[in-house]
């Protein structure tokens, strides 16, 4: 089962660490990610650039329009995602509670939704439309 772990962090918190601390944290995180990878638990992940680099796309007045930033008022911003392969929610919690990243910001762990049924339904509808 896949779990998406959303890592939140205060903007600048990581950048403002002393270099030695930042390096140490980086090394710990990479080591732990390697451990996850080695045991087949790491199904993907990316760190994100800051919210000021974001563009937000939204449907407005019949067309897609772009604004910059998510303009969230919250102190913590989404800083990265990690896709975890785990047996169940407790296993995911266990794996992530040892992730060094949790020391600098919270993780939100969400099970991936299984859209298999909906996707199959859609395939059937589209196939039926084609044969008409």
């Amino acid at each position: 089962m896949k779990y998406i772990c959303l890592g939140y962090i205060e903007p600048g918190k990581f950048e403002n660490l002393a270099e030695t601390e930042r390096n140490a944290l980086m090394d710990e995180c990479c080591t732990y990610d390697d451990e996850l990878r080695k045991n087949g638990h790491f199904a993907g992940g990316e760190a994100l650039q800051g919210p000021q680099s974001a563009a937000t796309l939204r449907w407005q007045e019949g067309k897609a329009s772009v604004t910059d930033g998510p303009y969230a008022e919250t102190k913590e911003q989404l800083g990265g995602i990690l896709i975890l392969e785990a047996r169940d929610l407790n296993h995911a919690i266990q794996l992530m509670s040892k992730h060094p990243g949790v020391k600098v910001g919270p993780f939100e762990i969400r099970p991936a939704a299984d859209l298999g049924e909906m996707v199959r339904g859609s395939e059937l509808r589209r196939a039926a439309a084609k044969t008409k």
Binding site: M1, R87, D88, L89, N90
Partner: peptide
């Protein structure tokens, strides 16, 4: 059993059970 299976059987949310 997985956390999710137990939660379903006891009609509880998985996060509570976890």
């Amino acid at each position: 059993l997985t956390t999710e299976e137990i939660a379903r059987a006891f009609l509880t949310g998985a996060p509570t059970l976890a």
